Structures are given as structure tokens and as C-alpha cells.
Amino acid sequence: MSLQSSRKSLAGAPALAVHRGSREDALRRGAVLFFHGLGGSKEVNERELGVFADRGLFAVGIDVVGHGERCYLDFGARFTHDNPRVKEEFLQVVQATANEVPAVLDALVALGAHPERLGISGASLGGFISYRALLVDRRLRVAAPLIASPEWALPLPESPHRHLERFFPVALFSQTAGLDEVVHPSLARTFHARLEPLYAQAPERLRYREFPLSGHMMRPADWDEAIRDAADWVVRFLDVEQAPP
């Protein structure tokens, strides 16, 4: 049974949905949001969406605020290292996109998504959004952020690392790159170490992994493994039944 894809708007957010079999069955099995990196779009990760969809999920790529179909007209000026406010611009995008997640989930549930089988993932910028979204909407049961950090570069009260008590019982699997020159892996590593006591009653719901030989642009084999394992993690903790081949 081949993968099917469609473009739609979910609560005003441009989205690309990928699933195997009927839309209704995939939504019932479980839905996962996937957010792309800085400068990307929902189409950039269509292959990754397919990996999640192959596990039976209704996989949805979203254009981050200021990207893709709603790209800022001055995107290049906002996100250049010459802009002294580039960190603020980045975190504004993180917060604005995460704040849309409740309405996006509402739209998915209205389409038929199982309200207790909702997950999130994303890479780089998308991983930052994933961490923040867990604090914005408690319906998210599982998260698999990649090459991202729960600790922000600016001392803002919204930074996820300041709210450890709000993560359990979310099944959280963070994957980083040991040679990452953009997002240092120690930030997620330290965060997970601080979370461990809060997950003592269900330690299997917390996992951290680092790929020691990859930088921010991960080696292809490492990236493929990370995406496969992220998809398996989401399926495991949403208790998703497998779609027919």
C-alpha cells in the first residue's frame, strides 16, 4: 500500500500530511507533528514524514512561522549573523510556532485524530519547537526532538529547561550530535540528567542519545538511524497498531 500525501491548512498553518492507507485509519492510529529546521519548509522533510507514516501514523509537516508558504519577506535580514537580534528572532519563531500547536491539534482531532495518540518531533529549530510545545499543550504524549536544545540562548522564563516538573509523563527521546557546532549536545544531555529523578517511576519513558561522529548536519547513516528510531519511539508510546503493508 503506497504512501499518500496531501497539502492542507490546519488552523491557518500550512501543512503537508503523509499517511499509508485511508486517512481515517491513520488518524485513528495516531498523529505526529514534524517541524523543520531554520530556513526550511514542510516539503524538506517529506522523506522523514514517510518514515513515520510507514509505521502507521498520520504524519504532518508544518511550515514554521515565517517559513515556507508564509516566509518572512525580510527572512535573510532577520536570520543573518550580522543581525544583533538574531537570537531574539529565532526564539520568537520558536514561541509563535509552539503557540499554534493547540489549534493545530484541535484541527487534527476534528479530522478524526485519536485525542490520546498525539506526538511531536522536529529537527534543529523544529526540535526547539518540540520542547516548547510540550509545555503549551499537555495532549502531546510523546516527543522525539533532534539536534536541538531545551535550554535557550537567552535567559527567558519560557525556556523549557526551567520547567522540569512539567515534562513527566511525556515519553521524551532526545537525539543530538556529538560534534554539533550549532547546538551543543551538552545542553540536552544535562537536561535529561536533571529529568531522571522525575522519571524514576517510569524510566523507560526517558531516553537520550548522542551520535559522537556527527555535526549539526548529521552523517547520512546517523540521520537515517535517528529518524527511524524517533519514529519507532513515537509508535511505541502512542501504542500504535501497525498499518497493513
Rank of each mutant, 00 (worst) to 15 (best):
S2I: 02
L3M: 07
L3E: 07
Q4R: 15
Q4M: 13
S5E: 13
R7W: 08
R7I: 02
R7Y: 12
R7V: 06
K8P: 00
K8C: 12
K8I: 14
L10N: 03
A15R: 04
A15N: 02
A15W: 07
A17R: 08
V18P: 04
V18K: 06
H19A: 10
H19S: 11
R20W: 03
R20K: 14
R20S: 10
G21V: 05
S22T: 15
R23C: 09
R23W: 04
R23P: 10
R23M: 13
E24K: 11
E24V: 06
D25P: 00
L27K: 06
L27I: 05
R28P: 00
R29A: 04
V32S: 01
L33Y: 08
L33G: 06
L33I: 09
F34T: 10
F34M: 12
F34N: 13
F35T: 06
H36W: 06
H36K: 08
H36I: 01
H36A: 03
G37M: 04
G37Q: 11
G37K: 02
L38Q: 13
G39H: 12
G39S: 07
G40Y: 11
S41C: 14
K42L: 12
E43A: 13
V44R: 14
N45W: 09
N45Y: 15
N45E: 12
N45H: 14
E46G: 00
E46H: 07
R47G: 07
E48Y: 13
L49H: 10
G50W: 05
G50L: 05
V51P: 00
V51Q: 08
V51R: 11
F52D: 02
F52V: 07
D54T: 09
D54K: 07
R55C: 00
G56H: 05
G56T: 04
L57Q: 03
L57D: 02
F58I: 05
V60N: 01
G61M: 00
G61L: 01
G61Q: 05
D63V: 04
D63I: 03
V64E: 10
V65S: 05
G66D: 05
G66E: 00
G66F: 07
H67R: 01
H67N: 07
G68H: 05
G68R: 02
E69G: 15
R70M: 06
R70N: 09
R70H: 07
Y72G: 01
D74H: 07
F75H: 09
G76D: 14
A77D: 14
A77L: 12
A77Q: 15
R78E: 10
F79M: 09
F79N: 08
F79T: 09
H81R: 15
H81Q: 14
D82Q: 15
N83M: 11
N83Q: 12
N83S: 11
P84H: 12
R85N: 14
V86K: 12
V86H: 14
K87Y: 03
K87Q: 12
E88M: 08
E88S: 11
E89M: 12
E89I: 10
F90H: 11
L91V: 05
L91C: 01
V93M: 07
V93K: 08
V93D: 15
V94P: 05
Q95V: 13
